[in-house]
Design a protein around this nucleic acid. Structure first.
Lengths: 193, 193
DNA sequence: CGATAACTGACGAACGTTCGTTAGATACGG
DNA sequence: CCGTATCTAACGAACGTTCGTCAGTTATCG
């Protein structure tokens, strides 16, 4: 399908240059056609952009939910650290997470509202299922605490800080250091000892 | 000075729309002049942008260093939490941190190299002075650990996650929740107990 | 034949930038 | 104190390019 090739190229340039910085002619050239031909597949730049956005959201959401739902509820240490690894992996292997991050932080002003809705929807779903996992661990006294919300938000904070390091990402070693440091302190902060 | 008015307006539009999304005519209109007149004060768009960038860096760096150097080394709990508050305050009161964040994460491609240098320089300085503080606390057995780098990086991670929530910033309550959660877990992670 | 998807050509609008010019302030020598 | 020269900061007009978009035409293929 040619539409997918266009979306793939669009994903690439939107990620690198942002909405305003990416041009249809650039994208078209990447797939070997003229920019006007894009209009045979999409209504316009906004339409193309929003379709790329929804694809990226779906891909990331399903990856995360799939991983979380496979957690066995017995070893939070392994499961949570594995989740961090998953995020790093997703970021490095799939352009979509990079794109998603960029435009969820800094959406083009005239699409900000529509984008925010998608972002909130996703965030909500991940937090909800993650929180239920933490609730289980608290119940079985695998970790400390009463309110599951606290470790959940703290963990999402660790995820965010790692994502930020990835975005910023010039240094593999620094990423590793930061991951280990954040993880060590986080785990000590929620574990029984 | 008219130059400062231009930089102020430029800061605003660069922050909202990014480098490519902000236009000189927009900026000029904000200060009540034509875009051509900007060239009496700056060599061009790039020059204006880089000057705004350096101003923002300087402002943020001096704010942070000033705060850190005033830490009294006796109460890390108060000092570190205060630093988080400072960051939140800076973000909400001064447009410059918002700008700095945006363009350090997603710099315009053709200026990426120059920007990265500024960002690294700043990051390095903050980490260095913060690490020496942590070293003191470890020495005086106010917090746990041996290597000061671990709590330092973890703390910077907390700062980043809060910044991200601010950027993302649609919800005051969510920010508060996340701050409290991350802080509680972080503090338990490095405190003696 | 009909449909799909590519093409060419053209559009108005906006972009960053350069030019020559003007009005006003400042500095200086007689 | 006056006239002149220099400097500053703004201007309108225009430059060449690129932008996103639309209309009409041609090629491909079941």
């Amino acid at each position: 399908m040619k539409s997918n090739e266009i979306k793939e190229a669009a994903l690439k340039f939107f990620t690198i240059h942002g909405y305003e910085g990416a041009s249809l002619s650039q994208i078209a050239k990447e797939v070997g056609m003229k920019k006007q031909s894009i209009y045979a597949h999409f209504k316009g730049k906004d339409d193309l952009f929003m379709q790329v956005l929804r694809d990226a959201k779906e891909a990331e959401l399903s990856s995360k939910l799939h991983y979380i739902s496979k957690m066995d509820s017995h070893s939070p240490k392994k499961d949570l650290y594995g989740f961090l690894q998953l995020v790093i992996d997703l970021f490095q292997k799939k352009e979509q997470l990079k794109f998603w991050l960029r435009i969820s932080f800094f959406p083009p002003a005239h699409l900000a509202e529509a984008i925010e809705k998608e972002v909130l929807d996703m965030e909500e779903k991940v937090q909800l299922i993650l929180e239920s996992k933490f609730q289980d661990w608290i119940h079985t006294q695998t970790i400390i605490g009463q309110a599951a919300k606290i470790p959940t938000l703290a963990f999402l904070g660790v995820v965010d800080s790692i994502l930020l390091e990835l975005v910023y990402g010039n240094d593999e070693k620094r990423l590793k250091d930061k991951l280990e440091a954040s993880w060590a302190v986080f785990w000590r902060g929620i574990s029984l000892h």
